[in-house]
């Protein structure tokens, strides 16, 4: 290595000129050719996990647990709550004025709030800005799970309210039939919604999941009616219970998968 050093302002200037000259010559060698093979998002996530134990413990004031009623934090639009209330009213209207079968109403309408909730998940991710600020307090995965939880609780509450109205103002609903027409199909619909959301990962997953659900629900209704007509309905509650159990396992897998690739904040290049 050369030990030559600038000893006077003239030397310094000539060295700077030499550097500028070399700089220009260096530009002809295509620097961008030296590309980098970046690690996968999973590998970056492993590094982040390795860093977690070194983050200081939050002080007691800040470590307050997330309270479910702090719904404003989740940035769910009021339109979501209103749209689902309308579906609830639609269920009541169908039952009251057209005397439709309450079980079929439950089957078709119960998963709708959840599907619309998926829209909220992706809307939050696409708009990002506010969520990004929030993500300093809660990670994208925490927000995802909390949104899913809030949406599911709201969905179940609406369904229970509907069931309550049907029971109070109409004939009592049979528990076994509720499992067949509501609980099991609802869990299956949620698993379908999550599977579609995992594949499409944008707002298009909502209409896609709705179309798939309507098709499955109509096929289901037709088959059940046929089985009831031929007196083969006794094994249905067991089949429904089995389907619900399988769907719950599937839901857990889908949530894990959705969590993995879900981020409000991409790694910068």
């Amino acid at each position: 290595m050369s030990k030559k050093k600038a000893t006077s302002p003239f030397d310094a200037r000539s060295h700077d000129d030499e550097l500028i000259e070399l700089d220009k010559e260096f530009q002809q060698f295509k620097l961008e050719d030296f590309t980098v093979e970046y690690p996968s998002d999973e590998a970056i996530a492993r590094t982040i996990d390795a860093m977690r134990p070194y983050v200081a413990e939050p002080d007691s004031k800040r470590s307050k647990r997330f309270i479910p009623w702090k719904l404003h934090i989740l940035q769910i639009q009021p339109a979501f709550w209103m749209a689902n209330l309308l579906f609830f009213c639609l269920g009541l209207l169908l039952w009251r004025f057209w005397e439709d079968d309450p079980y079929k109403i439950m089957l078709l309408l119960s998963p709708v709030p959840f599907f619309l909730g998926l829209l909220e998940l992706f809307r939050g991710r696409n708009e990002g800005l506010l969520e990004l600020e929030i993500s300093c307090k809660y990670s994208a995965q925490q927000l995802l799970l909390r949104k899913l939880l809030a949406i599911s609780i709201y969905n179940v509450l609406l369904c229970l309210a509907l069931i309550g109205v049907f029971c109070i103002f109409g004939e009592p609903l049979l528990f076994s039939k509720l499992i067949i027409y509501w609980a099991a199909p609802f869990v299956v619909a949620v698993s379908i919604g999550l599977a579609v959301a995992n594949r499409i990962r944008n707002v298009l997953s909502v209409p896609t999941a709705l179309v798939i659900w309507i098709f499955i629900a109509m096929t289901f209704i037709t088959n059940i009616e046929r089985k009831e007509r031929y007196g083969q309905a006794s094994e249905l509650p067991y089949l429904a219970g089995l389907a619900a159990a399988l769907a719950i396992v599937f839901i857990v897998i889908q949530i894990k998968r959705l969590k993995k690739g879900f981020t409000y904040y991409e790694a910068f290049h």
Binding site: T47, P58, S139, F268
Partner: peptide, 19 residues
């Protein structure tokens, strides 16, 4: 935020500079 114990802020800052 990290000094206050935020895991999420650590995640955001790491992703910002990782690459």
């Amino acid at each position: 935020e990290i000094k206050n114990g935020s895991q999420a802020a650590m995640e955001v800052l790491t992703k910002r500079y990782y690459k």
